[in-house]
Design a protein around this nucleic acid. Sequence first.
DNA 1: ATAGGTGCAAAGCATTTGCCGCGGT
DNA 2: ACCGCGGCAAATGCTTTGCACCTAT
Lengths: 147, 147
Amino acid sequence: MESRIERLCIERGLKMTGQRRVVARVLSDASDHPDVEELYRRASALDQNISIATVYRTVRLFEEQGILERRDFGGGRARYEPSEDHHHYHLIDIDTGKVIEFEDAELEELMKVIAGRLGFDLVSLRLELFGRRRDSRARERTASDGA
Amino acid sequence: MESRIERLCIERGLKMTGQRRVVARVLSDASDHPDVEELYRRASALDQNISIATVYRTVRLFEEQGILERRDFGGGRARYEPSEDHHHYHLIDIDTGKVIEFEDAELEELMKVIAGRLGFDLVSLRLELFGRRRDSRARERTASDGA
DNA sequence: ATAGGTGCAAAGCATTTGCCGCGGT
DNA sequence: ACCGCGGCAAATGCTTTGCACCTAT
């Protein structure tokens, strides 16, 4: 079946090759923030006819098309997630590497005000929180986004 | 004369070589956020007996010692600034690349609250705002702002 | 038919490191 | 004197690219 991201590609008139379809599917199915290596691994599982260079090219194309967002959580490799309509931010658990997403209207508002005070219009912002779980015993059963 | 950062090195018992003294001086004098290439350029102007590998090593050492902070403003190269006692954040002018520093107590408080809501203690955070300078017409309309 | 995509290997870029002679303490 | 430091060039890790072939439209 046609994945969500494949549909977006078609809307934008991108040529749909087998490889792109596979990458689109892998991304559509991902609920984490995989790096290129990991995308390549997942894509290869579905179709060995794919090279890592193509994954790089595809991921870049999708980003340019606004289909994908590139993230940098440190560690020197880019991580990707499908674009969503509402902005959200990330908190990284420094013990497990797990990434928690959150939204916060007040946050964005405050950033706009701060930029405004400095004489700027806020165009975009990059924010990552790094934190440690408060009660590690209670919630230690969750880890899927390890980097 | 002994630069501010050289003094910090001595306090920490680091061996003070000529090269380290030069890098310490360049950093002490910097009011911007130079990358390694730029530090190398400035250091070379004071003393040609320095290789870029040493700048890399020194900058890394200083960072490990808490003397320096590494920043990532995008563009793929690390940028450095001497550590300061109070946290501050950066707004990057997307047209000129110029970096504006600011502090904001409310911001840090909000981040703590957000992390807390998610069940985390905030350990650190990374934030960069990207903005565009409001044009002069817009600024005149607002009458007073601290550009 | 043809513009553009793909694989492969080589190149690129920022950064690190092995080796070995040199310099600070 | 000793251990660590610095220069150089080679190595590294992620990402991009040149080239020749292939495929979606």
